[in-house]
Design a protein around this nucleic acid. Structure first.
Lengths: 252, 252
DNA sequence: AAAAATCTAACGAACGTTCGATAGATTTGC
DNA sequence: GCAAATCTATCGAACGTTCGTTAGATTTTT
């Protein structure tokens, strides 16, 4: 179960691990394990619409369908992805695909719900360990970067396809975005109250932090080309943010 | 001609004006004027394909077509925009539209070329006024924000549709992006050499600056809701970046 | 009236979706 | 234990619709 990955793994001596509570490799394991649970939930939630009875088969193909959808959509856009494209990528016929969703719209809704739940599940598990504002800020930045790295196709998709969602789904996506921003704003407000952080507009600062985090998963190929790892980017982002926020700016 | 807007306009006493050389209102005038020239260039460049003889008519309708394309595409994506959508928005029939471009692909290419040239024209006019690194950095940030504000539909479009371009057009878009980043990296390198800026990775820093600038035109509705003006955001962005870059961090 | 600009109607291709057919696995009847 | 009967998952052809695009008719301008 998901908890297996959270145990402290010996042999990895990076200071980063201590800060965030787990290394990125651990984090990837956690996501892989949580995804299985999320798929089972998705299947249960859409049992009425999914015509395939065998759970193992259904989950295997749902997984294929979702990952193929992300792959194709991130190349040409969800709207431009045809059912025939999806058929070719999954190895299932167009007819068989419709045993798993009632239409392209529902496929989009299912995917959104599944991945959003997965993100929230992992976030809630991993945030709020520290009471010290500085440590909380560092952990929040690192966790978000790890998460977006481990689920990059989804984060990219979610950003680029936001405008194509139905209004109810778009509202959920927007409020999820603002929630992330509020997490950072809260950390900043608490740190300011206790005198650890300078007096800066918390919402504007949180917005810029989020912009920095988003750049990581939106420009992935650029960072790959320049051989910037997620840990290096995290260190840099934390230094950048702390130079603006922390009192005694020489501390870094 | 474009130069008219660059004269110092009395009566606007914002300190911002002094920093950037011109206020945002001046900047909008400049863009409007430059756009006319750019449209004439576009028409000349595609004279062979555009079947409408009268220049005034052609320019009026090209302008309509481009702005309608940006409007519709920014709502549903260029791929999803149909020629019938464009016909309804411009008031021209589908047949008439094909007197202005040979196909949807060419419309995209024309739009890309026209707006990219417009951006470059204005950037080259407005950057490189100061020799002091601090002032150069401030000006570059503010100019980019003003430009992306005055041409927000295009900047948003350019970002969201990048993946749908032909490979040659995509290369132009990418290199234009990297060029922007190089401008900031150069300013940082010079400032570090002369001891005004701290020793930080120039490329990573430039990347984060660009992410902060992009957030302005990608999340416009958020900032509108929170009543954050482009000048306020520019001040904040400059303070954020300088806290990380400038030596003597108390100067802000 | 000639030229220019636009409009109308239509084309084939590709789209999302449906549906009858089918091979293989599973259950039933004896 | 083995046919017969049923179920499961999948297939691919076909439907109606919408797409980009075009040719010819019509209106507007000069």
């Amino acid at each position: 179960m998901p908890e297996q990955g959270s145990a402290v793994v010996p042999g990895i001596s990076r200071s980063l691990r201590v800060q965030s509570g787990m290394s990125f490799a651990d984090f990837e394991r956690l996501v892989r394990a949580s995804r299985e649970d999320a798929l089972r939930d998705t299947l249960a939630r859409h049992r009425h619409a999914i015509q395939v009875k065998n759970e193992q088969t259904a989950i295997r193909n749902l997984e294929r369908i979702f990952s193929a959808t992300l792959k194709i959509s991130n190349e040409k856009g969800f709207q431009a992805m045809s059912i025939r494209d999806l058929s070719k990528e999954t190895g299932l016929s167009t007819g068989a695909l419709y045993s798993y969703f009632s239409g392209k719209d529902e496929l989009l809704t299912m995917l959104q719900q599944q991945e959003r739940d997965l993100v929230q599940r992992i976030l809630l598990e991993r945030i709020g360990e520290h009471s010290d504002p500085t440590e909380r800020l560092r952990t929040a930045i690192r966790i978000h970067l790890y998460l977006s790295e481990a689920m990059q196709p989804w984060f990219y998709f979610s950003y680029m396809e936001a405008k194509n969602l139905s209004s109810s789904e778009r509202k959920k996506a927007v409020s999820s975005e603002l929630y992330t921003e509020e997490i950072f704003a809260d950390i900043l407000r608490n740190g300011q109250k206790s005198g650890v952080f300078k007096k800066r507009d918390p919402l504007l600062t949180a917005g810029i932090i989020k912009a920095i985090l988003q750049d990581w998963y939106l420009k992935r190929s650029k960072f790959a080309r320049r051989q910037v790892s997620v840990n290096k980017y995290a260190d840099f982002a934390i230094a950048f943010v702390e130079a603006f926020c922390r009192e005694h700016s020489g501390a870094y």
